[in-house]
Protein backbone atom coordinates (compact mmCIF):
# COMPACT_ATOMS: atom_id res chain seq x y z
CA UNK A 1 0.00 0.00 0.00
CA UNK A 2 2.87 2.37 0.81
CA UNK A 3 4.30 2.06 -2.70
CA UNK A 4 0.85 2.42 -4.20
CA UNK A 5 0.13 5.61 -2.29
CA UNK A 6 2.78 7.45 -4.36
CA UNK A 7 0.70 6.95 -7.49
CA UNK A 8 -2.56 8.12 -5.96
CA UNK A 9 -4.28 11.01 -7.70
CA UNK A 10 -7.57 12.81 -6.86
CA UNK A 11 -9.27 10.75 -9.61
CA UNK A 12 -8.29 7.55 -7.84
CA UNK A 13 -9.66 8.92 -4.58
CA UNK A 14 -12.92 9.86 -6.27
CA UNK A 15 -13.29 6.43 -7.84
CA UNK A 16 -12.50 4.68 -4.57
CA UNK A 17 -14.96 6.81 -2.63
CA UNK A 18 -17.71 6.04 -5.20
CA UNK A 19 -16.80 2.37 -4.84
CA UNK A 20 -17.16 2.56 -1.05
CA UNK A 21 -20.51 4.35 -1.34
CA UNK A 22 -21.76 1.78 -3.85
CA UNK A 23 -20.66 -1.05 -1.57
CA UNK A 24 -22.57 0.26 1.45
CA UNK A 25 -25.53 1.46 -0.60
CA UNK A 26 -25.85 -2.09 -1.97
CA UNK A 27 -26.58 -3.41 1.53
CA UNK A 28 -28.98 -0.56 2.33
CA UNK A 29 -30.91 -1.18 -0.91
CA UNK A 30 -31.05 -4.92 -0.24
CA UNK A 31 -32.40 -4.45 3.29
CA UNK A 32 -34.97 -1.84 2.18
CA UNK A 33 -36.29 -4.03 -0.65
CA UNK A 34 -36.44 -7.14 1.54
CA UNK A 35 -38.31 -5.20 4.23
CA UNK A 36 -40.66 -3.88 1.58
CA UNK A 37 -41.24 -7.45 0.36
CA UNK A 38 -42.06 -8.64 3.88
CA UNK A 39 -44.35 -5.68 4.53
CA UNK A 40 -46.29 -6.44 1.35
CA UNK A 41 -47.56 -9.54 3.12
CA UNK A 42 -49.91 -7.30 5.07
CA UNK A 43 -51.68 -6.32 1.85
CA UNK A 44 -53.95 -9.30 2.45
CA UNK A 45 -55.70 -7.12 5.07
CA UNK A 46 -56.83 -4.72 2.33
CA UNK A 47 -58.42 -7.65 0.53
CA UNK A 48 -60.07 -9.15 3.63
CA UNK A 49 -61.41 -5.72 4.64
CA UNK A 50 -62.88 -5.21 1.17
CA UNK A 51 -64.93 -8.40 1.36
CA UNK A 52 -65.64 -7.97 5.07
CA UNK A 53 -63.80 -11.12 6.02
CA UNK A 54 -62.17 -11.72 9.38
CA UNK A 55 -58.62 -10.28 8.92
CA UNK A 56 -56.83 -13.60 9.22
CA UNK A 57 -54.05 -14.59 6.82
CA UNK A 58 -54.91 -18.32 6.65
CA UNK A 59 -58.56 -17.52 6.01
CA UNK A 60 -57.41 -15.28 3.17
CA UNK A 61 -55.29 -18.11 1.73
CA UNK A 62 -58.25 -20.53 1.89
CA UNK A 63 -60.73 -18.01 0.54
CA UNK A 64 -58.68 -16.82 -2.42
CA UNK A 65 -55.71 -18.94 -3.55
CA UNK A 66 -55.20 -16.82 -6.66
CA UNK A 67 -54.98 -13.58 -4.64
CA UNK A 68 -52.47 -15.36 -2.37
CA UNK A 69 -50.45 -16.36 -5.44
CA UNK A 70 -50.51 -12.76 -6.68
CA UNK A 71 -49.39 -11.53 -3.28
CA UNK A 72 -46.55 -14.09 -3.19
CA UNK A 73 -45.45 -13.08 -6.69
CA UNK A 74 -45.45 -9.39 -5.69
CA UNK A 75 -43.30 -10.21 -2.68
CA UNK A 76 -40.90 -12.34 -4.74
CA UNK A 77 -40.61 -9.70 -7.47
CA UNK A 78 -39.82 -6.98 -4.92
CA UNK A 79 -37.23 -9.15 -3.18
CA UNK A 80 -35.64 -10.09 -6.50
CA UNK A 81 -35.51 -6.42 -7.53
CA UNK A 82 -33.56 -5.81 -4.33
CA UNK A 83 -31.16 -8.65 -5.07
CA UNK A 84 -30.59 -7.41 -8.63
CA UNK A 85 -29.91 -3.85 -7.40
CA UNK A 86 -27.58 -5.26 -4.75
CA UNK A 87 -25.60 -7.23 -7.34
CA UNK A 88 -25.36 -4.26 -9.71
CA UNK A 89 -24.09 -1.93 -6.96
CA UNK A 90 -21.66 -4.57 -5.69
CA UNK A 91 -20.44 -5.08 -9.26
CA UNK A 92 -19.94 -1.33 -9.75
CA UNK A 93 -17.97 -1.16 -6.51
CA UNK A 94 -15.71 -4.09 -7.43
CA UNK A 95 -15.29 -2.85 -11.00
CA UNK A 96 -14.14 0.60 -9.87
CA UNK A 97 -11.67 -0.96 -7.42
CA UNK A 98 -10.28 -3.15 -10.20
CA UNK A 99 -9.85 -0.14 -12.49
CA UNK A 100 -7.88 1.72 -9.80
CA UNK A 101 -5.76 -1.36 -9.07
CA UNK A 102 -4.97 -1.85 -12.78
CA UNK A 103 -4.02 1.79 -13.27
CA UNK A 104 -1.76 1.78 -10.22
CA UNK A 105 -0.09 -1.43 -11.37
CA UNK A 106 0.69 0.15 -14.76
CA UNK A 107 2.00 3.35 -13.12
CA UNK A 108 4.29 1.25 -10.92
CA UNK A 109 5.60 -0.61 -13.95
CA UNK A 110 6.11 2.64 -15.88
CA UNK A 111 8.05 4.11 -12.98
CA UNK A 112 10.26 1.02 -12.77
CA UNK A 113 10.86 1.04 -16.53
CA UNK A 114 11.77 4.75 -16.34
CA UNK A 115 14.22 4.13 -13.51
CA UNK A 116 15.96 1.43 -15.52
Amino acid sequence: MTTQEEFFSPSHDRLLSIAVWAKYLAWVVLVVYLLNAVLQMFQYKVFTDAIELQPNFWQFVRFSPFETFKLAMNMLTTALRGVVSFLVLKGISLGLNMIVETDINYREQEKEAGAQ
Binding site: M1, Q4, L16, L87, G91, L94, N97, M98, V100, E101
Partner: peptide
Protein backbone atom coordinates in the same frame (compact mmCIF):
# COMPACT_ATOMS: atom_id res chain seq x y z
CA UNK B 1 -4.60 -7.11 -5.26
CA UNK B 2 -4.91 -4.48 -2.53
CA UNK B 3 -8.21 -2.89 -3.45
CA UNK B 4 -10.48 -5.85 -4.05
CA UNK B 5 -10.87 -9.51 -3.23
CA UNK B 6 -10.64 -11.83 -6.25
CA UNK B 7 -12.83 -14.41 -4.51
CA UNK B 8 -15.51 -11.76 -4.05
CA UNK B 9 -15.56 -11.12 -7.80
CA UNK B 10 -15.87 -14.83 -8.60
CA UNK B 11 -18.62 -15.25 -5.98
CA UNK B 12 -20.46 -12.22 -7.38
Amino acid sequence: PEFYDTLEVITL
